[in-house]
Amino acid sequence: MEPLDRYRPIIDDFEAFIDACERPLPSAVRVNTIKATVERVRTALAEADIAYEPVDWHDGLFVLPEDSPGANWPYFHGWIHGQEEVSVIPATVLDPQPGERLWDACAAPGSKTTQLAALMEDTGEVVATDNNLGRISALRTNTERLGATTVAVTHEDGRNHSLKPFGGEGYDRALVDVPCSCEGTIRKNPDTLEDWTLSHVEGISGVQKGILKRAVEVTEPGGTVVYSTCTFAPEENEAVLDYVLGETACEIVDYDLPLDHAPGITEWQDETFDPSVADAKRIYPHHNDTGGFFCAKLEVPAE
């Protein structure tokens, strides 16, 4: 927990935060509406004697207090997908509409990719990019099991994403859920902080800036970009937004989030950020008894 001490100045009720980080997190599953309805998933879970609890802000999410998703009928049929509560947030903030073209910039292993496809009722197109072939294999497996027919997978560094394979067309929306230091996953992976170093945080921040900048560039005027991480480090969150505000014409906008959260911070150590980064949301584990998360909504101005 030691690396988290640096956040004492920015987190209200820091002791409750640390206590929450020390508690394990139960499994959660998202209903895959490409293949099943919420009602049929409830029935199938009950038939399999799997206890499930609803999540008040999202009717397609269930917490499984005793089981892990995997070896049961609804999983085998691709009706459910193991996905943590906070990980469901960015696709709902992006709010894609049926028939749109999207870019998922860091897509593997595909939880959010398939959620985007489902939100569009498996119409339109989701171009799903990742730079790691092993993780692309997991992405492919998940899109197949969940029955998505609108996902195209590309192997490239998101910073240099090419529009050529698709005839040069830009996107209506982009999801930028970047690789990060993953501090917010501590409840799921208790050893996640063991290899924590400030130089890793600073290094990965450069990659995050490059990917978000590319996403803004390939999104059509009037389009939306969502930036998210599962970490608390301002270097990977507000600092990345501040950089992209300076480099591109995008704006950060406010949005409704039906979960307790804190605003993005505008000062960190000796740096200050653009005041609009306060419209980003920080979700701490003690807020809603979830993992930690960061999510911002950006708009590319119409011409």
């Binding site: 339109g124 197109e125 029955g147 027919t149 609108t150 195209a152």
Partner: peptide, 29 residues
């Protein structure tokens, strides 16, 4: 839906219509 062949004989089903051929890692299922 559009149908695509990758390698020898393996067909994929997709909803979009990218220019053919397209050199990527996956196209639908």
């Amino acid at each position: 839906y559009t149908f695509w062949e990758r390698g020898a004989g393996k067909l994929w089903l997709y909803q979009g219509t990218p220019p053919s051929p397209v050199d990527i890692e996956g196209l639908g299922m």
